[in-house]
């Protein structure tokens, strides 16, 4: 399966969904903005973008996404949650209602402080070569705890910033806001492998 044949949905209820669409297209795959649950049938993987998690969560519930997202996850199709998207797929969120529960982490929103504490940092990834990746953290969450089945793909000091459990990938930062596509490429590989398994 070539990348060209892969379709990636980007949940387009609110937030920086256009940037993920551009990123996926830049990698040579097909990207579709997802506004309604039935569209999930058309895609092989899903990105839940950054934005305001409270807003996106309300729209997920209001437009009946929950059941279809659960089905998507049950069928082991890859899902990538960035920032607000991470909050939405987490099993636990400190002081808030639980997320969708697709990855065994406990997260905290706005964990570094307010906008003035937002930052950029060059970080090492566990894949894609030695070159450091410019990670952009905007009112970013933290992963406070991760279960034993969660693979840590990048860290700053003791803070996990990129992690994966089976079909779920999460980042506390915004890979869609710059031109280094290594993380999107990694996600597309996850999708490629999941399609192969299915066939």
């Amino acid at each position: 399966m070539t990348k060209r044949g892969v379709s990636v949905g980007v949940l387009a209820l609110q937030g920086a969904f256009r940037e993920h669409v551009y990123s996926i297209r830049l990698c040579g795959a097909r990207a579709i903005e997802i506004k309604f649950p039935y569209q999930l049938d058309e895609v092989d993987g899903l990105i839940i973008p950054g934005g305001e998690s409270t807003t996106i969560r309300k729209l997920i519930n209001k437009y009946g996404f929950r059941y279809y997202l659960d089905e998507f996850n049950r069928s082991k199709k890859p899902i990538f949650g960035t920032c607000a998207g991470l909050i939405l797929v987490a099993k636990k969120v400190l002081n808030e209602d639980a997320g969708l529960g697709y990855i065994d982490i406990e997260a905290q929103r706005n964990s570094y402080g307010r906008q003035i504490d937002s930052f950029e940092e060059y970080v090492k990834l566990k894949f894609g070569g030695e070159e450091k990746f410019k990670a952009i953290f905007i009112r970013a969450p933290k992963i406070l705890k991760a279960g034993p089945d969660v693979a840590i793909l990048s860290k700053i000091n003791d803070n996990i910033i990129l992690a994966r459990q089976n079909n779920i990938l999460v980042s506390t930062f915004h890979p869609e806001l710059q031109k280094d596509m290594r993380i999107h490429e990694y996600f597309l590989k996850m999708i490629g492998k999941s399609i192969k398994r299915e066939n």
Binding site: A16, F17, G51
Partner: peptide
């Protein structure tokens, strides 16, 4: 500008 990007569609 990144924070403004996150507010889009809102």
């Amino acid at each position: 500008t990144g924070l403004a990007e996150m507010l889009k569609g809102g």
